[in-house]
Each structure stands twice: as structure tokens, then as C-alpha cells.
């Protein structure tokens, strides 16, 4: 198995790194997405993530397959959390391993960009004075 897709209440960079590292891969690129403590000058107190989990896993797998079949990647891990997270905590990790670094950089960027466009996961931002589903309205 050369790909790991996972949705859980807790994820770590180390899990993703341990999965992708292999002797035939000289380049490993990791993206870690964390909760930012401010949005448009407003203090963020926490985030809540909701997932349509079975479909989200399928869409994450499509992304992983594309990087392996079309982008020269040998191994990839895509991890995303569900539930509540506080500023500074990790919500998404993507680790990509390839024989050389260029393919790994490209595929890692492709994977996080595509995840944000296609994977059915929704983020609600909580502020001191209210809450909002991110990107829901124009």
C-alpha cells in the first residue's frame, strides 16, 4: 500500500512522515495546516470541522491516486481532522515522497489545493462574538 488517507479526531505530522518515508524516495515534502488565531483582524477562538466522511475519504483517495499515477509520487499520506481544534493545533497533514524533490513539492501543493476545492469537509470559525461557516457565501 503506497497511500494513506485518514480522517480522525487527532492527527500528527509524524504519522504521515512515518508512512511515506522509504529508501527509494530521496525527497519528502510535508504540508501541515494549523488553526490560525486571527481571521480578517478578528480573534479566532476555535474551529469546528464537519466531514461527509465516506465521500471525503474517496475524494482524498482520488487526489492520492492522481499524484501517484500522474505526478511521479511513490508514497503519499493525506490526514484531516474532524471535530474541534484550538489555535495552533494541526488540522491537515499531507506528506509526499518521491525519488526527487521537484515532484514531491509539486504534488504536495496539488494535493492541498485540490483538497480545499473538492473534499467535502466544512470549517466553522468561532469568534468571541459569533461563528461563521467559512466560504459559504460569496
Amino acid at each position: 500500500m503506497n497511500k494513506l488517507v485518514r480522517i480522525d479526531t487527532h492527527i500528527t505530522v509524524q504519522q504521515a512522515l512515518d508512512f511515506v518515508e522509504a529508501p527509494d524516495c530521496g525527497g519528502v515534502v510535508i504540508f501541515s495546516g494549523n488553526v490560525r488565531n486571527v481571521t480578517q483582524q478578528k480573534k479566532v477562538t476555535k474551529l469546528f470541522f464537519e466531514c461527509y466522511e465516506p465521500m471525503a475519504l474517496l475524494e482524498m483517495e482520488k487526489i492520492a491516486n492522481h499524484t501517484i499515477e500522474k505526478m511521479g509520487v511513490k508514497r503519499i499520506a493525506i490526514l484531516h481532522i474532524t471535530g474541534e481544534k484550538l489555535p495552533g493545533e494541526t488540522v491537515v497533514v499531507i506528506a509526499v515522497a518521491a525519488p526527487h524533490r521537484a515532484a514531491a513539492f509539486d504534488a504536495c501543493e496539488y494535493a492541498i489545493d485540490t483538497l480545499k476545492e473538492t473534499v467535502p469537509i466544512w470549517k466553522k470559525e468561532y469568534f468571541e462574538d459569533g461563528e461563521v461557516w467559512v466560504a459559504a457565501h460569496p
Binding site: M55, H80, V91, V92, K116, E117, T118, P120, I121, W133
Partner: peptide, 10 residues
């Protein structure tokens, strides 16, 4: 069947 509003993962 599922209704998918604008996604915002990551």
C-alpha cells in the same frame, strides 16, 4: 444523495 455546500477543509 447528499447536499454539498461550499467546502472549506484544510
Amino acid at each position: 444523495v447528499a447536499v454539498i455546500p461550499p467546502v472549506s477543509g484544510g
